[in-house]
Design a protein around this nucleic acid. Structure first.
Lengths: 152, 152
DNA sequence: ATAAAATACATGTATATACACATAAATAAA
DNA sequence: TTTATTTATGTGTATATACATGTATTTTAT
């Protein structure tokens, strides 16, 4: 669906302003379709992200800070996301022996299983839905990083 | 900042998967810098969006449904966003005389003033931060709409 | 004309975001 | 060593998201 239809607006200040809105809308669109699938597994998008990050280091443990700085949405409240994952017994949380300030987190066997199942579905979904080719994806990545050049 | 640095991940399944993460991260990045500016005006990003939508029809009133379907994030709870705008006296809410189910909303003079001030700042911010040219923006818009072709 | 269905909005709940602040532990400075 | 600072995490609050449900009103179908 074109942006104009999606937000029922035709007049944009500039092509750049339209691009900003287009990025915001596309992100919402992507999150929505992913969340719908993840719901089957009782996972939210953010819980899934934490599980994926933990998988990246598995079987090593990770401290909360390391997880947080790998999150896409940096302002996520990782301790509370971990609370919910722990309740579902998908992760195990312990205090680090080396540095007692640190809480170290690792996937449980249940977490591994859950992540494998949901990742399969999400990957298939993405293949089905996002049908751009390698070259377009590359160009898109280039442009998005150009947008973010003016990093604060 | 490159995506790899931002989320401290180097191995992506594909250029397409990277593009998905890049869109999500870019949206978060944009929302964050905008929200920081809007905070000066005591507005959240979503409250600002509702004000902008109302401005588009001003001085006409709009019903809640019309506002909702113009929101970038469709799952926004518009009645509650309006609650907060009403508390700040930026909008006025009345029951429609024609259809008593409808709540019609319109900007107050304070809302107009607030919106003008904040829009000026946001536009300037976007000009300063997002420095891609017209042609790149156009290309980006094209690619994002290509991503969303597989609409559900 | 009356009952059933649809519509518009409000409200409730769980989770998340954004951010301030609190607490405990480790590190640095005196 | 004792204090001060920094660091890692947890907690609290306001707002938002996502979605289910409730309520009043309008539309439609009988």
């Amino acid at each position: 669906m074109k942006l104009e239809q999606a937000i029922q607006s035709t007049k944009f200040k500039s092509e750049v302003q339209k691009a900003v809105l287009n990025i915001l809308y596309s992100a919402w669109w992507l999150k929505t379709i992913m969340s719908k699938e993840l719901k089957e597994y009782g996972l939210t998008h953010e819980q899934y992200n934490v599980l994926r990050i933990l998988k990246g280091k598995y079987p090593e443990q990770m401290c909360v800070r390391d997880i947080a700085c790998r999150m896409i949405e940096k302002s996520s409240n990782v301790p509370r996301i971990i609370d919910r994952l722990e309740l579902k017994k998908l992760v195990k949380r312990t205090t680090s022996a080396i540095d007692k300030r640190e809480t170290v987190v690792t996937l449980t066997q249940g977490g591994i299983t859950m992540l494998e199942a949901s990742t399969t579905i999400i990957n298939r979904l993405m293949e089905d839905i996002v049908t751009i080719d390698q070259k377009d994806a590359q160009q898109l990545n280039l442009l998005l990083e150009k947008v973010r050049v003016g990093e604060l």
